[in-house]
Amino acid sequence: MVTWQRLSKEAAARTAAAWENMDRESYERLKDHWTSTGPTDLNPFYSDLRKSIVDLNTESKKNVKDYSAKNRYPADLFFGIHLYKLLNDCGMRPCDASDDDIWRYLQVKVVPDLINDRWKPNNEEKRINNERMWEHSRRIWLKILWWYIELSLQNNSLEDTEKILKNNSSDDISQLIERAGNGYRIGLYRAIMKQYGETPHQGSTLLRRVLKLNIVRCATVEPQLSSEKTEEYVAELFEYCRDNDEPKQ
């Protein structure tokens, strides 16, 4: 069983601060070093893992039609699905995927250049998008890709999962991940994503509305204790959202 390395929030913050405080020349040298030989001090497992993730990232841009900076979703989906398989094949379990320190190590120590390339900082004076790199639990990029696939998994098949996710958008990823409540109801979320994938999309708000309505309903009715099957419960959520205005929380 693999022993995942961990990086605390404090240590990640120190590393990111060090990058920000470097003089420009040193930082450019560091970035070149990342892309040419990769970060140093990686053990053999992480060296191999880095190579695999970098190759996946490159492939995600080549194999996706109409790749563009404006529409990254198809590339993100390709990358996410294959990353999910890669990490699970390495022994990642749901409990590991819940450990932010594991993701911080992966992002800050193993593939910082990939995260930097995908997520530019919001502030032009900054070099790192800290939120996506290490800071915000529900925005750590590789983590949310893994959980996006986990919460959408169909029939234990990545092929079936890809089919129901292919027409979604980047906004759908955030909508799904950021509504954890007291913890995801995994089976329910998979059913919601299946229904969403099979429903002609009505603009970008349908999933958000369904998820919000679900949170509201779950405050009083526990779907897992309902006499309705999960699919019936989910169908009713979608029907309600199609027929009514957005529920207010």
Binding site: N182, G183, E222
Partner: peptide
Amino acid sequence: ALTVSSLSSNRQECIS
């Protein structure tokens, strides 16, 4: 019923 929920583990389930 019993509910088992964990924010740190991102999951919850309910058993009758």
